[in-house]
Amino acid sequence: MAASSARLLAVAAAAAAAARGRAAATFRHAPTVSSSLSFPPNPHHHHHHRPSIRGRAGISFSSTSISLPSSSLHASVPFNLFPPDSDPFIQWDPPPPDAASPLAAGAACRGAPEGPTLVVLLGWLGARQKHLRRYADLYRDRGVGSVRFVVPVRELLGLDLGRRVERRVADLAAEISAWCDADHRRTLLFHTFSNTGWLAYGAILENLQSRADIIERIRGCIVDSAPVLEIRPEVWAAGFSAAMLKKSSSMTGPSAESPDGYTSNGTLNNLSSDVTRPTWGENILLSTLQKFFEIVLHLPDVNKRLEKVHSVLSEKQPSCPQFYLYSSADRVIPAECVERFIDMQKSLGQSVFAHNFVSSPHVDHYRSFPHVYAAKIDEFLKICSIARDGNSL
């Protein structure tokens, strides 16, 4: 099973190169390196290996190779798909000096003035710090500092079943705790992107289960282009394909069900048949990734950990307002999945708000409708400022 999973990933990487080039020549002549990929029986058994760049999980990343120990499978993988990452995983943008928190007004009315507010920006798979910077600036203009967290695609391709990312999330949870501990008046917001950011949020909540004092300081959560609660291989395949192909992916363009022209308030405008359609290479990549995730997501260890995070997100979210920003045109996260989760949260008595942008692609709502997006954030901050104990007034 492990060798089959690794072989599928190698084929997927090659297919991604072909899709990027839009031609078979790219598939045949992409720069390659010898790569051995495998699932170790227990990732923790390989911690004594020292990789050349990042010393975890027995994975070696260098300018010439990607290798895992204990594998007899060798495949040619286009290395230029996953260039070395220069971005830090965690980037802090402290609140502006003497900035008034947008949540302070409501707190003052209750006789309990609050200190600075920090928004935790949890990026989509493959997001870079420069991508999240625009959202950080949006909040900074409103007196809110930020901490940005990204997950590069190659960070999940070490095949240690996501444990390295879990450790990164645990580090972030520790830094957030330290920031809150420095001043008991400090408050938090979370803004997640796609299923990767949403699952990172669930993992942070899991890490903070013993810190009820910090959970109580979470004043709101914005969920952009998520969630899908069910473990669905086709959704994971679509997300990874979009992250690997970036702008070459049809997932980032308008869908056949939506126009590529729309008004500034997100309503439909004039119809068009000029829709980005998947190339043969992208179809191969999607098919291969789906088969890959049909195996990986049902491995007992992976399935158990995902179910645990899903349980936290569905049943143990903080009693603070939730805001879901999504689109009917999203090809990665189906709108009906988001709406089903919204209904579930409402049935649990949570304070839930939502806005359907109708025609914008996956995690592209702010770029497609900047004024509407910013206005919706302002509305939600006002809701959070007058909310207490999770009940909006």
Rank of each mutant, 00 (worst) to 15 (best):
I214A: 01
T187F: 01
Q322V: 01
Y262W: 10
D181W: 08
P31V: 10
R388V: 11
E282L: 04
A14W: 02
R217F: 02
L189A: 00
W280H: 14
S5C: 15
H131V: 09
S225I: 05
I176L: 09
E216L: 06
H74E: 14
P31N: 11
L297E: 06
V11E: 12
Y201W: 13
Q129Y: 01
A14H: 06
A178S: 15
R110S: 09
I386Q: 10
R211Y: 05
A212H: 09
A335E: 10
G281L: 04
D93S: 14
A112E: 13
P227D: 04
G261F: 15
H191N: 07
E230N: 14
S264T: 15
G253I: 06
Q350S: 14
H191R: 03
D260I: 04
Q350E: 09
S70K: 15
N356G: 13
N195H: 08
S210L: 14
R185E: 08
I383L: 02
L205V: 02
A3W: 13
F79K: 07
A108V: 14
R140I: 11
Y373N: 07
P94N: 10
H191P: 00
A335G: 10
F380C: 05
L306E: 07
R140M: 10
S272K: 10
L68Q: 08
V275I: 11
L157F: 08
T263V: 13
A2M: 05
P83E: 06
S249Q: 05
D85N: 13
G55D: 13
G220V: 01
I176P: 02
S314A: 11
T288W: 00
G58I: 01
S101M: 03
R110K: 14
R54V: 12
L285E: 00
D137M: 09
S241I: 01
D141M: 11
S272Q: 09
S248Y: 09
F341E: 15
L189V: 02
P40Y: 01
G55W: 11
E315L: 12
T117F: 00
L189K: 02
D183C: 12
G239N: 11
A127M: 03
L271S: 12
P318I: 03
A24N: 08
R331C: 04
T187R: 11
N265V: 14
D301N: 11
P78V: 03
A112Y: 13
I333A: 04
R168S: 14
T32D: 03
H355E: 10
R20Y: 02
F369T: 06
L289R: 00
G202L: 03
G349N: 02
S328F: 09
R7V: 11
G145Q: 01
H310M: 12
A112V: 15
Q209A: 12
R7Q: 15
